[in-house]
Design a protein around this nucleic acid. Sequence first.
DNA 1: CGACGATATCGAAGTCGGTCGATCCGGCGC
DNA 2: GCGCCGGATCGACCGACTTCGATATCGTCG
Lengths: 113, 113
Amino acid sequence: MTTAPLDLPPARCPPLVREPVDEAAAVPLARAFKALGDPLRLRLLSLIAAHEGGEVCVCDLTPRFDVSAPTISHHLKVLREAGLITGERRGTWVYYRVRPETLGPLSDLLGTG
Amino acid sequence: MTTAPLDLPPARCPPLVREPVDEAAAVPLARAFKALGDPLRLRLLSLIAAHEGGEVCVCDLTPRFDVSAPTISHHLKVLREAGLITGERRGTWVYYRVRPETLGPLSDLLGTG
DNA sequence: CGACGATATCGAAGTCGGTCGATCCGGCGC
DNA sequence: GCGCCGGATCGACCGACTTCGATATCGTCG
């Protein structure tokens, strides 16, 4: 669960309307977007991001969906490995929060700025 | 090739750090992000977006990649069906351009604004 | 220490996605 | 009309993804 950052989160780069994405940079960026490419993961991420205090316990996430707990855990892992969130165990429960340093570059890349 | 907009592009909605994504809204948004979730498609989109004049002929795209022409065509179709680009045939060649009205909401959603 | 509750991991089954070669379609020029 | 060329579509193969139930792991409490 220790986040296992197998590779780097997407680096900051200019909007894709300004210059084409580099071949190497495209890989981590695509992985991040792919992680966002599932309705359940998008909702999970937004629940974490929008939660007051910036973090959410998994136990608050699980009952909101119609899938099993292992499935939720799996999707959280995908978001984790994409560098979009981090998880921290505190006692019995695990708390997740977003990583703005990953989300920011993605927004900038798609922006028209 | 006529774009076949089977369903709507993602609607504009507040950043996910402000309020959780609605269950219904998550579906088209996730489809758009999924389309971005491939390095080759990300590079294709950025080549189209960053090209002077705002449009690119497929014949200029194909030689830049190590995959076959049908594969390029397939990925362009995925981007098309996600509402991210539109294609237009003019004589012998087909030209693609980005749809900012789709890209914009995605950027806003991930932004911290 | 031993049982229990909360998550993560594992293994299996079904589905989806990327890629190719082959083929089809639409324009252009002869 | 005929053949050619750019591009899209089709059908198939194979690897990756989603989901589950079962099991393992980590902390807590008695």
